[in-house]
Structure formats: structure tokens, C-alpha cells
Design a protein around this nucleic acid. Structure first.
Lengths: 341, 341
DNA sequence: TTGAAAGCGCTAACAG
DNA sequence: CTGTTAGCGCTTTCAA
């Protein structure tokens, strides 16, 4: 049954039938041995050893498509992620992959460019490949993904952005933003003798950003500084949007504040571009807070304070919920950790 | 055949047999219609339409495990990538995914942490899931992956780092490094009146880094500046390694040069940390070149010149080679693009 | 102790 | 124009 070989390349893959023929036994024995449940079948140690040796020699690899079809279990787990343009999602993916592999699962990750259609398409593709569950990370429409999964009878989980139709694990955006805002206000007061509110830049005024704005307000209240409503700008995450927003703000609002709360490193990129072009000394005259972490930013200025979302703890919580397997749609909020230089 | 439903969750997935029963036709008709080759089978437009409607109503999704098993074609393609800690690999993955989807393929990406064992393990896992080919990106041992793939009868390709047993697409490391080095030397001469060689920091002294060192030397020769052999430090990519290397260099080599060629943004992170701690005015007294791009670095200083590897062109070349399907192990070198502020 | 056989869901050849 | 059937590689009963 071993197929013709040309130039060292097998045209057909080795199957358990090939191994069975080579070992003078049956496919079912080979299957049992290779799956480690041969003690249950009381296969002789000798046969087991021979089968293993031959499988090794042939470089045999089980066909998971066939195995999954028969078992009705793919061992594949899916994760949807928006982009790879920052450390945050990068570390989420790295850690998720590793934790999945540690559990004997095969992770497939798709990056959907913050595009709702692509998210849905990706979820459907994953379902076609029989994933056991989907983690929707930072999805623009998590509930839609939950609906699709539910219709297919598989579970889904939300990470980073919450939904109402599946359990969610996210940062404590309110608490994190409140602490960060307070630190920045304090530093402006102590170091720059500025007792003024901050500008808020970046994100979409729902979900996480709404929570962060709430924390932003609470911190101002804590320090008895009035929020400037005309300086809360949820212009989206893109760097260019943030840059444009600031250009516009500084043109139209002459008595603007100087310190800022920036909603992500991506938005910060735009903010810094604008600073470089229009207000090059701003980093020496006011503090900035960033709800996100990048080590390069840390080197840019002493006056940019950051919080880092606690990815390891978030993923521990996620996998705990996955393992628990109950049907409540709990929301778990993980405090970010300070990353102040 | 439609299974019991509890709480809106189907316990069993809909199959083409369910659809066939619902439509009063056969599974093969359903299959043909859903695969778009129903004109070949001359199925009536009316039946086709009914089948499509019912499939839609049921939220049917083909089981790719079964389909792949039968077709002996998975439509899955694999990519191995080292880490998600920089923009370069991030953009490679984003673009690869998109190009795979555009071709009706399903990309699975695994991040292997620059760990040779993990690379092999990942390749084997992908083969078990019947990938049609594997792209090994920045692999520590590309030829090992090629061997494994060859034994399984599937093709492999190298990206970013070359191998001898599969086609390779990489940056023109020699040319890129030569140009970048020349620019930095020139800027040191023009702006800082320094006519001295550069320190080379980061990477492993093989493959790409060896080529870059060659370009580094060539540029020095071009400008008639003698290379300082004791200042070529291929200490690995990690930020901390670069930081330690510089600390050591400046302690042991008192007459060191000031300008630098840094081999990646990750190494640059360490270099900048060292600068901040030990030589905070260095960015005002010498230029630095970085073989890699990050928009945040661009904001850090006017005196850091970068080249950006040309990911779109590299991936176009990669997919061209994949499509060509011939057996030569060509090496394609793509010039990086300037990203000088 | 072991092997034969059924069947997971799908596709394609073949037979109407 | 359409349905029946065999079989992809594997796992798991069942029978010996």
C-alpha cells in the first residue's frame, strides 16, 4: 500500500492501513496504539512497540481531518483578533496559542482588520472547519458572532470587548482610566503647575471607550477639576484620525487644555505626530496618559504615563470560563497594571 | 433528520442529508448546488434555488473536515512566524491572511517564539491538519521544516530567512544595509562632523545578519572609513541583549565610535534604553540607523534613520512562486524601501 | 488478545 | 436532469 515515491516526495500520505500491513496487524490495532488506549485493548507490549517503531520510521502523521470526522471532535479552537499593529493584541495571540497548545488544542487565529463583514466571514470559515469554540477579541460586533456560533451549536467568548450573548473578559476600563487620569492630572499639577482638565482622544464612544470616559470624568471629579466637554474626542483609533482631531481642536478651541488622555498606542502615534509638527515642546510642558503600553513609548518621554492591560490574568480568566462550561454570560473585569516610567 | 434543539442550540449540525430531505432531493444534488458545479450537472434552476434557500434558512455550513477528506484537498495553508512583537511580522501575517483568503484558501498561522522545537512541533501539527503548503517565516531552522514537509509530500517556502531546501523570499539585506549604513555615515559627517565608523548591534551572525554586516562593511569601504572589527556585535535580537552589549562595549572599548547600525526595532529598544540611561545626549550628537521600521521610532528622533522591509512586494513574490509550482529553490531578494524622516 | 466492519459528512463516478 | 453508491482515513463497537 505504500505509494510510489519520486525524488523523495511521497505522492500519497501513509495511512494506518499502510502501517498495519507493514506490522502484519490491523488498522484498529494501529489506531489504538497510536492513540495511547492500547492498555484498554490489552494489546501486547511487543506489538505496540513494533507499531510505534514502524510509524516512526515511516514518519507517519495522523490525518486529523479523518480523525476529527470520526471522533466528531476537531480539537481546533478559533480566535478572532482585529489587527497586529500593536503589542497588546500580539501578546494576546501569543499567549492564547501557547495556552491552547498546552491543553492539546490546535489554535487558529484570524485577523479581521476591524471589519465587521470580515469578522462574520472568519467566524463562518472557522465553523466550517469545526472549531470547538470561538474567542472574539476586540470584535466590532461580538453579539453577531455569538449568534452565528449559537446557531451552529458551539460556544463563543468575548475578550477585550464585551457582548451580551457570551461570557466576556475585559480590562477594568473604568478603574484603569480613573487611576491613569488621576496620575496625569496630579503630575500636571505637581510638575507643570497646571491645574486644568485633560483632553480625551481616541476610540469609539461605546463599550470600552465609554467606560474609560466615565473613569476620566470620575478622576476629574476626584480632583475637583471640571471636565471640558468640548475636549472629549472619540474619533476612532486610527493614528490619522487622532492627528486630524487635534489639529481641528487646537484651531477651533483656543483655550484648550494641554494635558491628554490618549486611548491607545495607535491613537498616540497620531497624537505624537501632531505634537512633533504643531506643538513640539508640549511633552516638556504637560503630561500625557495612554491607555495601552508600548516599550518604545516608554523611551520617548518621561511625561507619557501608560497603563498596560494585564494579558496573562485576562487569559487565565478566559480559559477558566472556557473550562467551567456553564451558561451564564458573566463579565469579568481585570485591572490593568501601571506601567509608569 | 434535524436534531433536537435545546435553548436554541443545536446539538447536532445540519448535514447535506438534512437539506436533501427538506428539499425532497438527494445529497449529491445538494452538494453540487452548494459547490457551484450544478450547471455541469444540469440541475434545474428551480431546484438549485430551493436548495440554496433551504441551506440558508438552516444556517448550513459545509463540514470542511469531511469535504477535505473526500476531495483530498484541505484548502488550508500554513504559516510559521517567530513573534508578534514588531510591526514587520505583524504586517506579514495580516497581508498573508488576506492574500490567502483572496485565493479561496484558509490560512492558519502559528507563532513559534524563535524556538526550533516549537517550529518543528508546529509544522507537524499543520501537516496533521493537511495543510497544502507551509511558509516558514524567519525560522531558526528552515531546512528542517523543509525536510519534514518533503517527507509528507507537501511544499514549503521560506520567507524572511533563506534556506537551501525550498524557495526563499527575503529582503535585499546586503543592499539595504549598505544604503542605510552609507546614509548614517553621511549624516554623521554632514551634521555632526563625525568621520568615524559605526557600531553594529543586534542579530545572529548568520544569514540575514551576515549579509547586513557585509553591506555595512561595503558602505564603510565606499566612504573610505575603516570598519572597527571590535564594534561589530551580533548579540541576538532581544532588547536586553543589545542593552547589555552596549554597556559592555562602552566599558571595555574607551575609543568607541558613536553612531550605530541597529539590526531590528527590538534591538533598538534595548539600544534606546541604554542611551536613555547612559548616554542621554547621544541622539543629539550622532546618527543611528535601524534595519526595520516602527512609526513610533520615527517620532523619537530625527537622527534615527530606518529602512522598511517591503512586505507587499515580498508577499507578491512569495505567492507568485507558490503559483508557479516549479521545483527550483530560487532565492528572491526584495530591496527594502527607505523610511527616513 | 485481536480483527472485521460500520459509519462520521462529503464528493464524484456512474447509472439511470 | 437526478439519485445511488463507493470510499476518503480514522475510531469504535462487536464478535471471535
Amino acid at each position: 500500500m505504500v505509494q510510489p515515491v519520486a525524488d523523495g516526495i511521497q505522492t500519497k500520505r501513509t495511512t494506518i492501513y499502510d502501517l498495519a500491513a507493514l506490522a502484519g496487524t490491523s488498522a484498529s490495532a494501529v489506531s489504538a496504539v497510536l492513540n495511547g488506549n492500547w492498555k484498554k485493548r490489552r494489546i501486547s507490549e511487543k506489538l505496540a512497540e513494533r507499531i510505534r517503531r514502524i510509524a516512526d520510521e515511516q514518519g507517519y502523521a495522523v490525518n486529523m481531518q479523518a480523525s476529527a470526522l470520526r471522533r466528531e471532535r476537531s480539537r481546533i479552537v478559533g480566535m478572532i483578533v482585529p489587527m497586529y499593529d500593536n503589542r497588546y493584541f500580539g501578546s494576546i495571540v501569543e499567549k492564547f496559542e501557547q495556552m491552547a497548545r498546552d491543553r492539546g488544542l490546535f489554535p487558529i487565529i484570524t485577523c479581521t482588520q476591524r471589519d465587521p463583514d470580515l469578522e462574520v466571514q472568519a467566524a463562518r470559515a472557522m465553523l466550517s472547519y469545526q472549531v470547538e469554540f470561538i474567542v472574539a477579541t476586540g470584535a466590532t460586533d461580538p453579539d453577531h458572532i455569538s449568534d452565528i456560533c449559537r446557531a451552529a451549536g458551539i460556544r463563543s467568548f468575548n475578550l477585550d470587548l464585551p457582548g451580551t450573548k457570551a461570557p466576556s473578559v475585559l480590562s477594568d476600563n473604568f478603574g484603569g482610566a480613573r487611576t491613569l487620569t488621576r496620575q496625569v492630572l496630579q503630575r500636571n499639577r505637581d510638575r507643570f503647575a497646571r491645574n486644568e482638565p485633560l483632553v480625551f482622544v481616541g476610540g469609539r464612544a461605546v463599550d470600552n471607550t465609554a467606560e474609560r470616559i466615565r473613569g476620566f470624568r470620575a478622576a476629574h471629579a476626584d480632583m475637583e477639576i471640571a471636565v471640558r466637554e468640548d475636549c472629549i474626542i472619540a474619533c476612532g483609533y486610527a493614528a490619522q484620525k487622532a492627528e486630524q482631531a487635534l489639529t481641528h481642536l487646537y484651531q477651533t478651541v483656543p483655550d484648550h487644555p494641554h494635558g491628554m488622555f490618549v486611548n491607545s498606542t495607535i491613537s498616540l502615534e497620531g497624537v505624537l505626530r501632531w505634537i512633533k509638527k504643531e506643538q513640539p515642546d508640549l511633552l516638556q510642558t504637560a503630561a500625557i496618559g495612554c491607555f495601552d503600553f508600548d516599550p518604545l513609548v516608554d523611551l520617548l518621554s518621561e511625561n507619557i504615563l501608560m497603563v498596560k492591560q494585564d494579558v496573562p490574568t485576562m487569559l487565565d480568566a478566559l480559559w477558566r470560563i472556557i473550562a467551567e462550561n456553564n451558561t451564564t454570560h458573566e463579565v469579568v473585569e481585570i485591572p490593568p497594571v501601571a506601567a509608569v516610567s
